[in-house]
Every structure is written in structure tokens, then in C-alpha cells.
Amino acid sequence: MTMQRDVHDELRARLHEAAEAHEPDRARILARVERGMAGPGRQRSDHRATRPPLWGWTRIAGATAAVAGMLAVGGYAVASAVKGDTPAQQQTVSVSSPPVESPEATSRPLASPRATPSSGGGASPSVKPHVPPSKSARATPPTPTVTMLPAIDDDRDGPLWSDGSVDPHSNDFWAQSNVTLKTSERLTHLTVQLKVAQTGGVSRAGAWRSLPEDDFVFSVVERDGFLVYTWVLKEGRTVAEGEWVFAGQYDHDRGGRDARNDSYAVSGRSEGGQSSVGGDFAPHDAG
């Protein structure tokens, strides 16, 4: 009994190995079937000519079914022999062949994801090209709103004192006009305005002030033949007691420039009330 069991186990192991290594040659089997079918046909060519075409296809289908049945029976016999060694749970993975695209599908351009149906029914989607707006269509920044201060010919008022002068570093092509302001009290509101007459080629070239830049809203515009520089103290900011300078820079035509028509005006508020000073650019003596 032990010897028979060993022989049976050995036979089962060999059948198991043969089942794993077995790969049926389908091409060779089909070739043999075709040769078998072609032989009798040559011997009885006269009889096949009288048969309807349906019998030829029937024979091919029957032979194919027979081959498939042989392969299935052989696989079942081998599987039955090694059934005892097959694991309890066996997973089967089926692999499908990759899809084949037709030449027509690969030759067509890809549709844009932004394509939208046209207004006409049944029309193909169309993509509208992006056209950047022209420079003329772009919005231009608005001109700052400037409140013109009235002309004042008084360099002293309350805690304020002022002076206007052309900077000595000005030259034949460029100039700087300085407005010097003194205050003996803390200011809670302040507006300084400088007007430079258009004497020919006058254009803005810069500006500065000795107080913090972030404390003021600055603008420069052309108004009624003047280049107008304006500094306005922001809400909640203050100006301490002391002497401060506001300067406007500009280019002009070549040669010495006459500043007789230039002017400035200053409006400030302190605890003592509202004060206003102004004048031209002739030198003044400090009191």
C-alpha cells in the first residue's frame, strides 16, 4: 500500500508539472486540421463542386469545434489528475488585448476643451481666439481731484510762517522750487500747494518733502497754464512743531527761467484754529 501511494503521489506530481508546462500549439493543430480537410477535397473535387457552399463552412465550423473539444477534454483530464494538489482558492486574471484605433480617429485633431457649440443647430464646436484689447480700449487712470487753494500774499498767520524760493542748484534745463514752512504748534490738518507757471517746456521731474512720505497724499497736475504740486496730510496724522520743506522739481526750456508768476499757498489747522499763508518766490526774511 505504501509503494502504491508513493507511485500515485509521484505520478500526480509529474502530471502537475506537465500541466503547468503544457502549452498547446494551436497553430500546429489548426494546420493539421486544414491539411486533413484539404486531402479528401482534392480526391473528390468533382463532388465538392456540386455541393452548395454551406457545407464547406459547416465542415470548418465542425472541425474547429472538435479541436476546441479536444483541448477542453485534455485540460479537464489533466486538471482532474492534479485536483488534489490545487489550492482551495485560486484567482484567475484575464488580460484583454489593447484597443486598436482606426487611422481616421488618430488623424483627426483633438477637440479643444474650451470649444462651445455654435449658434447653428448641428454645427461643429468652434473656439473663439483670444484677442488682447487694444491700447486705445484700455482705461486710463483718472486725473486726481485737486482743490485749488486761493492765492494768499501773507507769509505769517498764527503759528505759521512760510517762504518760497528757487533752489540754488537749478540750472539751464532743470529747476527746483522750495516751499519752507515753520509752525510753532502741532498741526492736525495741512495742505501745501505749489504752482509753477508754464514758461515753455515745463514738465514734472519729481518732488519730495522733509516730513514722512506716508503721512501725505501727493499729486501733480496741469491746470490753467500751471504745473500744480499738492501735498495733503492724511486723516489721523499730525505735523510736529518745527521747520519743514516741500519741493517740486521740473524741466524747462534751455536758459534762465523767470519764476515771477510762480506761487504757493499753505492751509493748516492747530488747536488754536485755522491758519493760511502764501506768496511768491522772492526771498523773505525770517522773523
Rank of each mutant, 00 (worst) to 15 (best):
V95T: 10
V228G: 09
A247W: 03
A13F: 02
L181N: 06
Q89N: 12
K234F: 05
K135P: 03
R59E: 11
S270I: 04
G39Q: 09
H16Q: 13
S275V: 04
V166W: 08
F281H: 06
S119P: 06
L160Y: 04
V7R: 10
W244C: 02
L110S: 07
P125C: 05
S124K: 12
D25H: 06
E243P: 04
L190V: 01
Y264E: 05
D224T: 02
V266R: 07
A63D: 04
M37T: 12
G164Q: 05
P52R: 11
D85Y: 11
E235F: 03
L11N: 15
E104P: 00
T188A: 06
A207C: 07
H252Q: 13
T140G: 10
K182G: 15
D215M: 04
E23P: 01
A205R: 15
V228T: 10
V127L: 10
S210M: 02
V179W: 04
A72Q: 07
V93K: 12
A282D: 05
M1S: 15
V277W: 00
H8T: 15
A137Q: 11
G69E: 12
A115I: 04
V7D: 07
M148Q: 08
T64L: 09
V7W: 05
M37F: 10
Q193M: 12
V131C: 03
Y264I: 03
T191Q: 09
T191W: 03
E222W: 02
A18V: 10
V277F: 00
P168D: 13
Q90W: 01
Q176D: 13
D224W: 00
W57Y: 06
P53L: 02
M3A: 08
S102W: 08
T199G: 14
A265W: 01
P40C: 00
S203Y: 08
M148P: 06
H284L: 05
A27C: 00
W208E: 14
D285I: 03
A105E: 10
W161G: 10
P113D: 02
A111V: 14
S184P: 01
A27Y: 02
Q274M: 01
E34K: 12
Y76H: 15
T230E: 05
G122W: 12
I60E: 12
S96W: 04
D153N: 15
S165T: 14
S219T: 08
A79L: 03
P283Q: 12
A123Y: 12
L54D: 13
T140V: 13
G200A: 11
S275R: 09
V245H: 06
Q43F: 10
D9R: 15
G69H: 11
P212H: 05
G242A: 10
S112L: 04
T116G: 00
G36Y: 10
R44W: 07
R209Y: 05
V221W: 05
R59L: 11
R254T: 10
S119I: 03
E20H: 07
V166I: 14
P99G: 06
R223H: 14
R26I: 08
P109T: 01
